[in-house]
Design a protein around this nucleic acid. Sequence first.
RNA 1: GGCCUUGUGGUCAAGCGGUUAAGACGGCGCCCUCUCACGGCGCAAUCCCGGGUUCGAUUCCCGGCAAGGUCACCA
Length: 552
Amino acid sequence: MNYQLLAERLLPGEYPSLASFEEKYPPRALPKGAEVTRLAPSPTGFIHLGNLFAAIANERIAHRSGGILYLRIEDTDLKRKVDGAVEAVINALKYFDIRFDEGAEIGGDETYAPWYQRGRAEIYRAYAKRLIEEGRAYPCFCTEEELELLREEQTKKKEITGYYGKYAKCRDLSEEEIYRNLDAGKPFVIRLRSMGNPENKIKFHDEIKGEITVTENDQDVVILKSDGIPTYHFAHAIDDHLMRTTLVIRGEEWLASLPIHIELFEALGFERPRYGHNCSLMKQDGETRRKLSKRKDPELSLEFYRKDGYFPRAVKVYMLTLLNSNFEEWYLKNPDADLNEFPFKASKMSKSGTLFDLDKLSDISKNELSKLSAEQMAAFLRGWAEEFGTEAQRGFFADEEKMLRVLSLCMGIGGKKRRKDFTTASQAMEFIRYFFERPAAYEELRTESAVCARVLKDFLARYRYGDDAQAWFASVKEIAAANGFAAEMKDYKANPQGYRGSVADVAEILRIATTGKANTPDLWTIQQILGEAEVRERAELALRDLCGGEDK
RNA sequence: GGCCUUGUGGUCAAGCGGUUAAGACGGCGCCCUCUCACGGCGCAAUCCCGGGUUCGAUUCCCGGCAAGGUCACCA
């Protein structure tokens, strides 16, 4: 068979020589050891935790080594295209401090452009043409229906499904048959003529998993679809070679197609990049666990974290602790270090799927947020409120000075110990709400309401706004004593039967009256922030609404 | 079903022939001048199973089992 002629018939016209591509996209002039990594999403615009997970690994490895991280868009499937998706991806990642050096919509060095695969059609076809000329690729005229039938037949016979060996009908079509089909105008795809044998096992070094064995590929995979656009596999081999990628960190789901890629690189005569296949994020689903799915699991979406107001650095720290097992220890020792100083290593990446743990994330969030100054916290909350908060919540920021005092109190700024009350912006806004709105409801009291009423009346009679914390608490003790409560905790503990309760119960009454809640930071400070008139007002209100206005 | 990967407390995990089998999150208990938060102390809880190899296996080998991934003209 004259492959030369066939190639010309299949992909007519002049294509740039393969050598010219090598020239146009030369090896990168980077210092030794510098890694070139990439992110290659399809333009659905949906970027999720799994993407972020891989993105952080790629970014860290590239930049730790003095290399390059670039963004390539795999838009070979039109069905997946969504407008504005690329910008969405870039912005979402920027939020987590992941920046590209070059790539689609990035600017930077354009030597290796175009970054959209649709813009590289000529390149793929040129290589496909060469493969046809060499007899390593051939046209296939099978329809999708035929392939479907084949699959059913194979399944029924319990044989391996796919287009290979004796099942590859078009692999050995005669020259005559090929041209007859072509003349009839039948659509065709280009398939690789695989030379592999699945009996052969290949040892392979994976940067994350270590030594693994893979089976040789024997599938005559499609490399060019009937519209002349390459499949992922073919585009991957060509792009990562021409863009001079040194290390491909990608999801574990690609491990199964590694044999195809190995054969493709070999057929094309390219040196392979190194690979690292990282585990996926899992979720507990009843008895079993499964890969986080974008349809079922809202927490997979990055949007979920933005809406809830998770602090970006916290999410990043959490990802890092999952990504590198020694990160947590390092971070404990260097709590204030720049995250980029951590010596990230692909070999420290986990081999097995990890269950996503919201509790852990919350804990990290509390710690991260507690490191902020009141000003930083206010800025973070305001940013969140402007985008996701209610009108009322935005109103909290009207009095900036008050907001700063509130945050300082809730974060323990100025005290001996930092408080850690906040996990997310939405939770924090709810937490500080009583500073800005009167209680709409009261948490349950341990003390009967008639007694509460007396305590509140006493409080109203004795409250002096000018009292310092000590004097204030002394008067709370007096109120306690006057109403049959133990003024000293020790006394109460020594003789619980002898009292109606302790000063703690009295404090609870006052706390719930002024905030509606049983648990808050220091009450005296809260009252200082609220102001005398407001404190009295709330006590009166509580007397009426909480205690039914009971007198005596 | 074939192939590949993975199997240490509830979760993330150190460990890589001899350890009281780290640490973190979560849970529980106690302490900490009024609650909460913070902090401190403590408790419970783990080497998937079965065979080998070895004086000795969580660690090495084999075989099971389980979980996950993948088998498209999607990436």
